[in-house]
Amino acid sequence: MTDAAAPDRIRAETAAPPAAPVPKGARIGAGRGARLARKAGDRAGRLGRFVWSGWAGLAALALLAALWQAGHEAYGAFILPAPLDTLVAARGVLADADAWAVLGQTSWRAVAGFGLAAVAGTLAGIAAGYSPATLRLARPLLTVSLGVPPIAWIVLAMIWFGASDATVAATILIAATPVVFVGAAEGVATRDRGLDAMAEAFGAGPVRRFLAVASRQMASHLFPALALALGTSFKVAVMAELLANAGGIGGELARARALLDIALALAWVLLAVAALIVVEYGLIRPLRAEVERWREAAEPWGVKR
C-alpha cells in the first residue's frame, strides 16, 4: 500500500510549493484589496469607538467637578477654590509662555524617566521571567525597593546629583522600574507553555518563540504595569522637583504655597494631571489597543461601549 503510494507522494511534494496559475493570481489580488478595505474600515471603527468613549470620561470628570463644587460651597474659597475659578487660574497660567516651558520641562523629565524605567524594567523582567531562580532572588529585593519611600530616594539623589534633571530621572527610575519589572516577569513566567510547545512543534527556535508567542502574552501583564509606572513617573517628578527645588511644576507649586495662592496651586495640579492624561491616552492606550485588539472580540457588549 505504502510502496504504491510513494510515487504519488513524491509528485504531490513537487507540486506542493506554490506556483499559482495566472487567473488564480488575479483573484488573489482582488482578495487582497478587499482585505485592505476591511482593515481600513475596522481601524476607522476602532478609532471612532475610542473617541466616542471620551464621553464616558467627560461624564466622570463632570461628576468629580460636582463633588468639588459641593466641597467648595461647604468650606469656602480659601480652603477649596471653585472648579471654575481653578480653570480660570489654569487658563491664566497657560497664557504665559513660560508656563508652557515649565509644563514641558516636567513632562520631559517624567517621560524620560518613564522611558528609562520601561526599558530597564522590561529587559530585566524578561530575563527573570525565563529564569525562575533569578525571579526568586529578585522578589525580596523588589519588596525592599518598593518599601523605601520615594522621598528617601529623592534625598539620596539630591546628594548624588544636586538639583538637576538627573535627580528627577534617577528618582523616577528607582520608583517606577520595579512595577514594570514585575509586570514583564510575571507576563513571561505565567505564559502558556502549551503555546510554546506548539510553536516548537512547528519549527520555531527560542528567539522566534519569544517574539511570536511569549512577548504577546507578556503584553497583557506589561501594559497595566506601564500605565501605573507612567502615573508614578509624573507624581514622583513633581515631588522631586518640589523637594529638590529643581523648577518645573514642583517648583511652581512651591511658589504657590509660599504665596498661599490655593487657586494657583490647584491650577498647577490640574495641569500636571492634564499632561499625564495627554501622554497616557496619546501613547499608552493606542499602543495597547493595537496590540490587544483580540481582547475586544472577547468582551461582552456592555463592556465594549
Partner: peptide, 8 residues
C-alpha cells in the same frame, strides 16, 4: 487542545 494563538 487547539492551542491557537488568541491574538490572531
Amino acid at each position: 487542545e487547539p492551542r491557537l494563538l488568541p491574538w490572531l
